[in-house]
Simulated assay, not measured.
Amino acid sequence: MRPPRFVRRVSSSSPLAGIALVILASWSLSTLDTSGKWIMAAGLPLAFLCWVRFTVHLALVAALAPSSALRAALRPRRPYAQFLRGAVMLSATFSFFTALRYMPQAEATSINFLAPLIVLACAPWILREPARLSRWMAALAGFAGILIIIRPGSGLDPVGVSFGLLTALLFSIQYVCTRLVAIDSPMTTLIWSGGVGTIGLTAALPFIVPAAWPALREFGLQEWLVMASTGVWGALGHVLQIQAYRLTPASLLAPFLYLQIVAASILGWLVWGDFPDALTWLGIAVICGSGIVIGAIEWRRSPAPGTPVPEAGGGLS
Rank of each mutant, 00 (worst) to 15 (best):
P4S: 13
R5Y: 10
R5P: 00
S11T: 11
S14I: 00
I23H: 01
I23C: 13
L24A: 15
S28D: 01
T34G: 14
G36D: 09
G36W: 05
W38V: 10
I39T: 07
A41M: 13
F48Q: 06
C50F: 05
W51T: 02
A62E: 01
A69R: 08
L74W: 08
R77I: 10
Q82C: 03
V88P: 03
V88W: 06
M89C: 13
L90H: 05
A92K: 02
S95K: 05
F96E: 00
F97D: 01
L100G: 03
Y102R: 02
P104E: 10
Q105G: 04
T109A: 14
S110Q: 04
I111D: 10
N112T: 09
F113Y: 15
A115Q: 11
P116W: 08
P116R: 06
V119S: 08
A121E: 09
A123D: 08
R128E: 08
R132Q: 15
R135F: 11
R135D: 15
W136L: 15
M137W: 05
A139V: 06
A144F: 09
L147D: 02
G160W: 04
G160H: 02
T167L: 07
A168D: 14
C177P: 00
L180G: 00
L180D: 10
I183D: 13
D184R: 10
S185V: 10
T188G: 02
T188L: 08
W192H: 04
S193F: 14
G194I: 04
G197K: 12
I199R: 00
A203F: 15
L205K: 13
F207H: 09
P214K: 11
P214Y: 06
R217C: 12
E218M: 15
L221W: 14
E223G: 06
W224K: 07
W224S: 05
V226D: 07
M227C: 15
T230G: 06
V232A: 12
V232N: 07
L236H: 04
V239E: 05
V239N: 06
V239L: 14
Y245R: 12
Y245N: 09
T248D: 02
Y258T: 06
I261T: 06
I261P: 00
V262C: 11
A264F: 01
G268F: 04
W269Q: 11
G273T: 13
G273W: 12
P276V: 05
W281M: 07
L282D: 00
I284A: 07
I284V: 14
V286Y: 14
C288S: 13
G291K: 05
I292D: 10
G295T: 05
G295S: 15
A296F: 12
I297G: 00
P303E: 11
T307Y: 10
T307A: 12
P308E: 07
P308T: 14
G315T: 08
L316D: 04
